Computed example of a mutant assay.
Amino acid sequence: MISRTLFTDLLIMIFLVALQIYVLNKITLFGKFTPVLYPVFVMFYPFFRNKFQFLALSFLIGLSIDTLMHSGGYNAFATTLIAYFRTLIFRSSTDTSTDFFSFQSLQWTQFLLFLFSSIFLHQLFVQYMEFFKLSRIFEILINVLVTSVISFIFIVVYALIFKIKQKV
Rank of each mutant, 00 (worst) to 15 (best):
L10Y: 12
L29C: 11
T5R: 07
L68A: 03
A18W: 08
F52P: 01
P35G: 07
Q53R: 15
V17R: 00
E130K: 12
L121I: 15
V36R: 05
V168D: 05
D99F: 08
S102C: 04
L57I: 08
M69S: 15
Y158K: 03
R91T: 06
L6V: 14
M69C: 11
F47E: 00
G73S: 03
Q53Y: 14
R4H: 13
Q107D: 12
I155A: 02
V40P: 01
I61D: 03
F44Q: 01
L10V: 13
N75F: 07
Q123W: 01
P35R: 06
F138E: 13
L19G: 07
L16T: 03
A76F: 02
F85A: 10
M43G: 02
T147P: 06
L81N: 00
K51D: 10
Y128H: 09
R136Y: 11
K163A: 11
L113Q: 12
I27P: 09
Y38A: 07
I14C: 14
F116I: 14
L112A: 13
T147E: 10
V157Y: 10
G73W: 00
F59C: 11
S92Q: 12
F111G: 02
M129N: 10
L160E: 13
L16D: 04
V17I: 15
M13V: 08
I89N: 02
T5Y: 05
F131L: 13
Q166K: 14
F48W: 12
F54T: 05
F48N: 14
I2C: 03
F120M: 06
V144H: 07
H122V: 06
L19E: 05
Y158S: 07
W108Y: 15
F15C: 12
A76K: 06
F48L: 11
F131A: 10
I161H: 04
F162S: 09
I65G: 00
T79W: 00
K163T: 06
F48P: 03
F152N: 02
M69I: 06
P35M: 09
Q20I: 10
I89G: 04
V17L: 08
T79R: 02
F138T: 14
L115P: 00
I161F: 14
N25A: 07
I142T: 14
K51G: 02
K32L: 13
M69W: 06
R86A: 00
R49M: 13
I61H: 01
F85I: 15
H122C: 03
D66W: 04
F90G: 00
L121K: 02
L112P: 01
R4M: 15
L113F: 11
K26L: 15
V149N: 00
L121H: 03
L112E: 04
S118P: 00
R136S: 14
L112W: 08
K51F: 13
S118K: 02
L63F: 08
